[in-house]
Design a protein around this nucleic acid. Sequence first.
DNA 1: CCCTTCATTTGACTCGTGTAACCTAGTAAG
DNA 2: CTTACTAGGTTACACGAGTCAAATGAAGGG
Lengths: 335, 335
Amino acid sequence: MAKDTHVPASITSADVARLAGVSRATVSFVLNDTQGHRVSASTRARVLDAAKQLGYVPHAAARSLRAGRSNLVLMPASISAVGRLVSDWVDDLHSELDRYGYTAVLHAGRFADPLDAARAWAELRPAAVVALDGDRFTPRAAEVLTRAGVRGLLAFASHPVEGVHTVGFDHTRIGATAAEHLIARGRSRIGVVMPQERGLGTLAAPRLAGAESVAARHMATVTPVELSYTRESASALARRWRGLGLDAAFTYNDEYAALLLHALQAEGIVVPDEVALVGCDDLVLATLQQPALSTVRLDMPTPAQIADAVHELVETGTAKPVPAVNPVLIQRRTS
Amino acid sequence: MAKDTHVPASITSADVARLAGVSRATVSFVLNDTQGHRVSASTRARVLDAAKQLGYVPHAAARSLRAGRSNLVLMPASISAVGRLVSDWVDDLHSELDRYGYTAVLHAGRFADPLDAARAWAELRPAAVVALDGDRFTPRAAEVLTRAGVRGLLAFASHPVEGVHTVGFDHTRIGATAAEHLIARGRSRIGVVMPQERGLGTLAAPRLAGAESVAARHMATVTPVELSYTRESASALARRWRGLGLDAAFTYNDEYAALLLHALQAEGIVVPDEVALVGCDDLVLATLQQPALSTVRLDMPTPAQIADAVHELVETGTAKPVPAVNPVLIQRRTS
DNA sequence: CCCTTCATTTGACTCGTGTAACCTAGTAAG
DNA sequence: CTTACTAGGTTACACGAGTCAAATGAAGGG
């Protein structure tokens, strides 16, 4: 049973052919069940047997090199930057893409320059790239990928990019939705909490901008406030809170909101009487807070819709539009 | 500026060579800065210029096919199954592996059979596979990968597996640590909360077993209790809690603990008087609960240590042992 | 016994790269 | 003038798989 010779680099279809006593071509025909090529039942059995015995697994790189197309779908995303909400969604998308025969893969590389990122992705020659943080998808980056032969470019982004199938994900609207609500509830001095964690800044900035543009129309003010996801940072912020003169806050997500809520309460600041608070993502923990947290729910297109679009994009070069991400305010007790 | 001819499949080094008026070999020498081969400054400039102009990006598959080795490191992990704690750690690991020139990639495929999973990973011929959920790493699966030429097999697992560099991650010890603490605090009827979410069951089961074996030595009882990560599920559990006759609970992580804590309090059950509660992972939100949540912190080896081990494994076939994951109880107010 | 037909099987080329081995001048040394 | 060397470049092959055209062999018809 145990091979005593030291294992070679890798088992190839040539090894299978040798063991089965047939040519490599025949092996390929059998293993891929190639249409339009008849193989006798006996050789077919011999080949399958040999493949199993050797534990043969095809070499995806060689295969896609020859085929000129890969079945990889690359999703650039820093895993820690995506919240609970998105991570479940991403998992489902993996399953959906799998149904089409794609191998979905997540890549967390952080690049200063979007162009460097695009080049790194292009090296893998994926069939498609699905970017959740699509605003890093510049026209130049898209061009690099297209030139490398990547057929499906799909991005969640606020602005359409030439050559990229864009799913509307306008972070300014999120900020605007929160601000409109807070203003409607009679608040006028809104703090927007900006997370200091790596990678989150680029997502938070447009939300701030959205809140600002709404405020400008209503004689309200918006002030960016820095916060790291630690108790210390939250306590420090809470201590200087009264000095900021704010009567409302919108946070990057519900986790930051919960953190801030507790820090404020520890300082004796009453929510919502003194400060109204709105989080984002409608996580389970939002309802667990006391008082229960108002939040902005993000209605996302279904993973199946995205998978369909990706497939269509890869096959035909175009796809029908996908409904945009829609922010909906859920009012609870903190506003 | 705009090419009017429709874009070809992909730009290759041959295109660069043609434009620069040199052979493909020269292009390769220049682009890889190959030692032991002199290229005149003028041709070097011409090649670099052509590459830039065409937006040439090398084809990773072709490269690693030729080289016989890839720089991919595959991490099988369902993104939603890893908690906050682990996700930050994974991000750091990506960076560390990047320093060694590896491209770390996350794959979330869910396979019923570990062997199917191994085959899918093997197709990609990664340099290494790093499994956080290493107990799905059977000896047969390891064999498939080894035969496919994957050199670095590293897994967080409770038991060592032949041919796999194992980092101790004994989930039974986590359950045991929690149970020992609860018993030391005078509790004797411990409920272990089992998450119903997909993929979490396999991790939770050994924790339950660990708690059970400790209980058996102390005349205490352990009861598994099912809970999904929704308010409804938690409320339902809380309503029938008193009927269960338990005086303590250990949850899969702090998020489940927080969920249960609030549900119990809503039923008028006082924590810790009536029920002691211990979570896991020492998340920020643990300290935010009222009362602050006792928890099991998991001391993980640093991402740098893992990256070192992976690299050593790929290069030499062996690596020095990595310190195991160590569970440490953090007592706060719920126990 | 030769020609055709059909079912199987195979040789040879291709994908994009890296690299060992081989040319070609030009120059300096003997 | 021959020899030896060097800088600069090219040719040819390998990696692992898929696939087309051609080859092989056996059977059937005349």
